[in-house]
Nucleic acid binder design. Structure first.
Lengths: 192, 192
DNA sequence: CTCATGGTGTTACCGTCGGTAACCTACTGT
DNA sequence: ACAGTAGGTTACCGACGGTAACACCATGAG
């Protein structure tokens, strides 16, 4: 069948996914090929090079995460509820599969130098999405364009860094992190 | 003389620095050795392995940047002034030598998996420093410990990500970015 | 003067990685 | 029966990080 090349691609990506989850950054093309039961050149035929494979792998997870974030950005109940939901969606995602999350962060850092622009980094795409969300936010209607953009990318990095810290402090409940970040975003340094 | 081993180390680090600035992430041990006018094994005698060299190189820049940030955190004139000064110090540093900044970010991402804890990442150390600054902030006296920590790491990531975005949008003046980020930190989503 | 010693340097090598060229094989349509 | 073409493999390349072994040359002791 004609679609089998796409199916094949999906199968290979799933194999790559397993290797990344298991081996972390030691996932080599040889390992991935072995996991898929084939040899290297086939991987290269499908994905061009390592960066291509990793981009395809990243795209899959990023798209899924962005979907969740988009949904969270539409939460009903006002700005505070939407803020909490979005932060929580992000933290939930990285808590569920930290290995994948680390892979995405690392790729974004290591990939950008060459293909900057073509493939946007992980936090960058989160930031773009957030910028759209902020511009559409009813309670921030008419917000300055630059302000929305800078805020969005800043907030993306904020949630990412706090989440990164939190992964090393599992004794802190997720809700507490969500509380603190949301409070900062909603009211700034003003203490309750 | 006995100190010559340290001087030598410093000379080698400076050579490595030049290569990193020139070659970016393509800085290999061979290139660095050649730049220093020697061969690989000497580098290994001094720094153990590539990670050791990079850690030494990173420590130097991180220490300098953290010094600036510490100073900014002590700016007189109230919370708003200190916030602006700290954000501005960070953005000024990454604007001055973006190549070094990218190197630090990339190393933090690629290094942490193995030696997590021993060598703290770049943004992490910024976060730690900021946490101390927040706890010592007069106008936030008695702030909850967890809140200070989560805020600090979040803010560190926020400034980093916004700075990263800003490096690709040089048409935006630095002061504008500082304005927007400071406003968000001081008052949250409340529009002026 | 000779000779062991230790630091400084080199050459030459190893295993592994990303990536590719060349070949092989088996199924298809004519 | 045979040409063509997917789909696959083996065997290789250059570059990397890292290391072992050896060469040089100063110094101090007998």
């Amino acid at each position: 069948m004609a679609a089998s090349v796409l199916e094949r691609r999906a199968v290979l990506l799933e194999a790559a996914d397993r290797v990344v989850q298991r081996e972390g950054s030691a996932a080599s093309m040889n390992l991935i090929a072995a996991e898929a039961g084939i040899t290297k050149p086939i991987l290269y035929r499908h994905f061009g090079d390592k960066s291509g494979l990793y981009r395809a792998l990243a795209a899959r997870h990023i798209d899924e995460l962005l979907g969740r974030l988009r949904a969270a950005l539409l939460t009903r109940g006002g700005l505070a509820a939407r803020t909490r939901a979005t932060v929580e969606a992000y933290l939930t995602a990285i808590e569920r599969s930290p290995q994948i999350y680390r892979f995405l962060i690392q790729r974004a850092a290591v990939e950008e130098p060459d293909v900057r622009g073509e493939v946007e980094g992980f936090v960058r795409r989160f930031g773009d999405e957030l910028a759209a969300g902020i511009r559409n936010e009813p309670s921030l209607a008419g917000i300055d364009e630059l302000r929305a953009t800078v805020w969005a990318h800043g907030i993306a990095g904020m949630v990412q860094a706090a989440g990164d810290w939190w992964l090393d402090h599992p004794e802190v409940p997720r809700a507490a992190v969500v509380d603190q970040l949301s409070a900062l975003l909603l009211a700034g340094f003003d203490l309750d």
